[in-house]
Structure formats: C-alpha cells, structure tokens
C-alpha cells in the first residue's frame, strides 16, 4: 500500500488478456499497487430529508477513515478495486432493520466536470457504479443532484466482491469503449468513492465519501 494519501491514481496496464480481476481477492490484484484514499462523513445538513437530519443528529456515521483503491486496465476494460476494513460485515439485507454493506465509485457523466458535493446538477450529471452486498449485479446510477439518483436499466458494468480477514474487496469492471462515462486510454477522469457501513444502518446519503474528486488517469 502506498504511504500517505494521494488525490491522483494512475491505472496500471496488465498484459494478461483474460484476467481474473473480478475475483477481488485473487492473486493478480496482489501485484497491483494500492492507494490509500481518505474518506469523511457526508455533511448531515446536506441530507435531503428533515427526518434523516433529525434522526441522525448526534449519531455518528461515515466513520470509515480510508479505503484502498487499485486500478487496472487489462484487455479493453477498466477494473477498479476498493478494499476496506469491515469488522462486522453485513453481507445481505436480512431483516426489516438490517442494512447491507455497500460501496460506489462516481464520475462526472461527461468524464470532465460535475459538482461532487451535490452529486451533479441538471447541466452536469454524475454517473456511478454502486455495489450492495448480497446482490450479484451492480447498479449503474445517474444523478443530477442529491436525492435524484436513478438506476440505469441496462448497463455494461460487472462486479465481484469478497469479504475475507475483516476486509471487503470489491472489483468493478467496465469496457473502455462501452456505454457510459467516457474512459479513454491516456486520459484522466475525476473519480469519487463512497462506502456504506451496514452495521451502522448507513444508507442513502449517510456514508463515508471522498469530499473532493480524485483524478484517475488511464494508461496509454
């Protein structure tokens, strides 16, 4: 793991034409460097619900301090792996009052600019890849502001997840040329990360996130 906190990450190119990178704990990921990305709780006063603001006042959330980020381009696809400590994993929604662990990566929809704190706006939407424990497929979401997240019905993103030794590892995959955020070899794209702790009933806007965009650069 790279020491310190970085705000830019360059994806590594992996020569393997048929990588097994959706096995996020697999040996191939061991060769890939990992960047520690700092997280912070989302601001409570930005939650778009008076109920949520009132019921979570004085109640900690988003306490996860950092997440490990690894990025690889292999074949014609980008793989992003997130790894974080979860001592009490919530691997599925098992009851009315239980919530599953989750994570997401977010980009400006045009790959260039959007407001992260508001999750985009009407003119500059954002798009995210969202994994929730217990589901085999990720959600691809778009948003034009807080509370506007909608799911894209058909999308090319896939995901693999594993919980081992007190940590979640979640790998997303998307073909560079496939539909969605432009992912161009040699170019950079702003990237945000969010993690929800199911054990703490975190969901919706209650999460740990990157307060500012990182920069993800794809190899040429």
């Amino acid at each position: 793991m790279t020491a310190g906190t970085l705000t830019s990450v360059t994806a590594e190119r992996l020569g393997d034409a048929s990588p097994q990178l959706l096995a996020p704990g697999g040996t191939q990921w061991a060769k890939v460097s990992e960047t520690t990305v700092s997280l912070a709780p989302t601001p409570l006063d930005a939650q778009p619900s008076a109920y949520v603001q009132t019921s979570w006042a004085g109640r900690p959330y988003g306490a996860l301090a950092s997440v490990g980020l690894s990025a690889v381009v292999a074949g014609d696809a980008l793989y992003l792996r997130l790894r974080w400590a979860a001592a009490e994993p919530r691997q599925a929604i098992s009851d009315n009052d239980t919530y599953a662990d989750a994570c997401a990566v977010l980009f400006p929809l045009d790959g260039k600019t959007a407001e992260l704190a508001t999750m985009g706006d009407e003119r500059s939407p954002v798009q995210g890849w969202h994994w929730r424990a217990g589901t085999a497929l990720p959600f691809v979401i778009t948003a034009t502001g807080l509370g506007t997240v909608s799911r894209v019905p058909d999308h090319p993103v896939s995901v693999g997840a594993a919980w081992e030794n007190g940590s979640w590892s979640v790998a997303f995959k998307r073909g560079l040329s496939e539909q969605g955020v432009p992912l161009t070899a040699g170019a950079s794209v702003p990237l945000g990360i969010a993690v929800w702790s199911g054990a703490n009933s975190e969901r919706a806007g209650l999460k740990a996130h990157t307060p500012a965009w990182l920069t993800l650069t794809l190899p040429k």
Partner: peptide, 11 residues
C-alpha cells in the same frame, strides 16, 4: 411540527 425519530421493528 418537527419529525420524530422512529424505528422499524424486525420482522
């Protein structure tokens, strides 16, 4: 006039 925090009891 202010929302009261609530719980959702288990099944």
């Amino acid at each position: 006039g202010e929302p009261v925090p609530g719980t959702f009891p288990p099944l």
